[in-house]
Design a binder for these strands. Structure first.
Lengths: 208, 208
DNA sequence: GGTTAATTTTGACAGTGTCAAGATAGGCTG
DNA sequence: CAGCCTATCTTGACACTGTCAAAATTAACC
């Protein structure tokens, strides 16, 4: 043993086991589903002993929290990118672009989205502070952005921006969940769903 | 043994084990959460051996499917009741009443709602035909009701009733999920969330 | 009353998360 | 270089899980 079996050195100390565990966890979740994720096969796949992960993550739950945290980073990037791309094309178009970006991220990164905004982690009491902050920062950012627009007169003055944001998030979250969970099977209609939803939300923002 | 230890006869054949299992399953899910549901403690709680449930349910999954099916029955009752109550108070009020009923059912029967419209069962391939029918019948009923209203001129002619129904369901589903999973913690705002959502949806139905 | 079918139990197996104790290697101070 | 120290990994073990096969018990029915 200790020879170059695959590509790198087979050292006793793995080197960056933590990162590799995170990647492999996401891979398993994506390709085989949550029920197929066990710490033991995860460790085996990475070529390490059953309990090795425990020196990087206190728990199976902690591991999943770390994956979720990475998901929030990716989500943040995707959303700011969508906002940038939508800028200057008119609010209505921007809203449509944003909603598509949201649903597409959720559907194409379901293994992350499930953890980020699913009951598995949230109903567990062992939820890190930084995770809840990441989770809510998205909503807060939206509220603040809308408040800015409202001050500048682009959004109806009488609109309760907080309530609207919560409902808007609910709409996109709900559509995403129905698609991810396979309750809406016609994934070709994502575009039309987003258009309908975006139009509806957009109307709410308009001054009468 | 065989004496009256609790209330009824301690027969070898339990009598209505199936129904008792369904009830106890729902109780555990509600009070201790999904992670605390094991067939073994379930059987023990009911006073029966580990493998007894297997003669009434092929699987743990099958058991959960049966619970979900019962959930659909209750859900159907709650929704038709809400529709009846809302009748005659004007469409807007009816919509508000309906949306509140939806979210309240989801939140107050989370143990059922999770199974009915959650990924646990839907992403499992072992989903009975009758379950998928129950699940989609709710959406279909809504679409048909709206089509009827549209024919009679109560709903904007140019509205794509199917897309609207899907988005409307997404909105209520999303709000429910965010509340159930504890992402929206302020459950006192359910009323206002429903009002905002119902108003938004109601507007979509109105002819210009 | 005896056969048959329905129901429940016991035994067993592979798989899981996780803890405690030992083994190994890399990095530090001398 | 030697020696310790600490981070990292492994082995062993325990309680628990879902599920199957075979045996045991009871109800039902001719």
């Amino acid at each position: 043993m200790t020879s170059a079996n695959s590509n790198s050195k087979t050292t006793y100390h793995h080197g960056d086991l933590k990162a590799v565990l995170l990647d492999e966890t996401a891979r398993i979740l994506r390709q085989e589903g949550e029920s197929a994720l066990s710490l033991r096969v995860l460790a085996a796949n990475v070529g390490v002993s059953r309990t090795a992960p425990y020196h990087h993550f206190k728990d199976k739950q902690s591991l999943l929290c770390a994956v979720a945290e990475e998901g929030f980073v990716r989500f943040g990037h995707a959303m700011t990118r969508a906002l940038d791309e939508g800028r200057g094309h008119g609010g209505r178009h921007a809203m449509l672009h944003w909603s598509k970006a949201y649903v597409n991220f959720a559907v194409n990164n379901a293994e992350y989205y499930d953890l980020m905004y699913g009951g598995k982690l949230w109903r567990s009491k062992s939820l890190t502070k930084s995770l809840t902050r990441s989770a809510r920062s998205y909503l807060r950012a939206n509220v603040e952005r809308l408040q800015g627009l409202q001050k500048r007169g682009y959004v109806a003055q009488e609109l309760d921006v907080l309530r609207f944001s919560q409902v808007a998030w609910g709409t996109m979250h709900g559509i995403s969940r129905l698609l991810i969970d396979g309750i809406y099977t016609d994934s070709a209609s994502v575009k039309q769903l987003c258009e309908t939803a975006a139009d509806m939300l957009w109307q709410q923002l308009q001054p009468d």
